[in-house]
């Protein structure tokens, strides 16, 4: 008996109150962050009369599961998800490819005016999208691209300043010896970028890819301006059809929003281990 007692005393670690407080704070932040999401799911299962009922019900009774099929069928959500996937995947893959290539140029090559060029690239981040809306519209109209996906995809294929910046920061951390050994083995810049540097950038590439994908998936303004036919509508446009000038079908909107979130959640879960490390590493200059 005394041995058992001794073992219990031996195994009992002193309580680290700092950790306890930290976990309580984190738990509170987590609950606050999760609440809108939980509320969205809850609202998606209510009928229109229950949405604003007082006192509010977090767990709806009875749950109106029919909101989901109604939201799916009424708006052609399936088609919109396919449209959004085409745009988001194409633009993201192209953007990652080009951004990393440009970043390699800024991080691993030396040429006259490199700093000036980099500043110019960065300065494009300062221009609000509203300013370029009409000029871009005129250009795309000249190309005959209105009511096509090209205006939503092609600009991304030239890379984006934010992604170039993040990739460059990460590449600066990679010792130049890797590049030099590539030269010794007879590789050119393209091969060094593709076969040596790029595989080392996977965490940043994936995390930026997820963020870029989310940006395209949630983009409302672009499709609203350039798309005009129902069969080409994307997810954000479809979600807005539940919002009228004078009233909103909140329950259906929330059900549709839950459906629209699924690809993002799936992507986030699949790439979770890369996301934080990628962003953190990209922010540290070696």
């Amino acid at each position: 008996m005394s041995d058992r007692k001794a073992a219990i005393v031996y195994n009992k670690k002193p309580v680290n109150w700092k950790h306890v407080v930290l976990h309580i704070v984190l738990l509170c932040v987590c609950v606050i962050s999760m609440f809108p999401f939980v509320w969205m799911i809850s609202s998606s299962l209510k009928d229109s009369a229950l949405i604003f009922s007082y006192p509010p019900e977090l767990i709806p009774h009875p749950a109106t599961w029919s909101n989901y099929p109604v939201a799916w069928e009424e708006t052609g959500m399936g088609r919109a998800m396919i449209n959004s996937l085409i745009i988001a995947v194409t633009a993201t893959v192209g953007n990652m490819f080009v951004s990393s290539m440009v970043a390699y140029g800024f991080a691993k090559t030396n040429f006259k005016g490199k700093s000036a060029c980099f500043m110019i690239v960065l300065s494009t981040m300062m221009i609000p999208s509203q300013v370029t809306l009409i000029p871009l519209f005129i250009i795309f109209r000249q190309f005959g691209w209105i009511n096509t996906y090209y205006p939503l995809i092609v600009p991304s294929l030239f890379g984006t300043a934010a992604n170039v910046f993040m990739m460059r920061q990460y590449m600066l951390k990679i010792p130049d010896d890797f590049r030099d050994s590539g030269f010794i083995d007879g590789c050119g810049h393209f091969r060094i970028w593709l076969q040596i540097i790029l595989p080392m950038c996977v965490p940043t590439l994936v995390s930026l890819g997820v963020l870029t994908f989310m940006g395209h998936w949630n983009n409302y303004m672009g499709p609203m301006i350039y798309i005009s036919s129902r069969e080409k509508m994307t997810v954000p446009l479809v979600l807005r059809t539940f919002q009228g000038n004078y009233s909103t079908q909140w329950n259906l909107l929330m059900a549709a929003a839950c459906i629209a979130l699924l690809p993002i959640i799936a992507l986030y879960i699949a790439c979770q281990r890369f996301i934080i490390s990628g962003i953190m590493l990209g922010g540290i200059k070696g």
């Binding site: 809306l133 009409i134 519209f137 005129i138 109209r141 209105i146 499709p223 609203m224 301006i225 798309i227 005009s228 036919s229 129902r230 509508m233 446009l237 807005r240 059809t241 919002q243 009228g244 000038n245």
Partner: peptide, 23 residues
């Protein structure tokens, strides 16, 4: 029918852009 813009403000924004762009 083009019903991609949401609300009166959305329609006005799109319409102004299209008119300015010559569409």
């Amino acid at each position: 029918v083009d019903g991609t813009a949401s609300g009166w403000d959305g329609v006005a924004t799109k319409l102004i852009t299209m008119l300015a762009g010559g569409e």
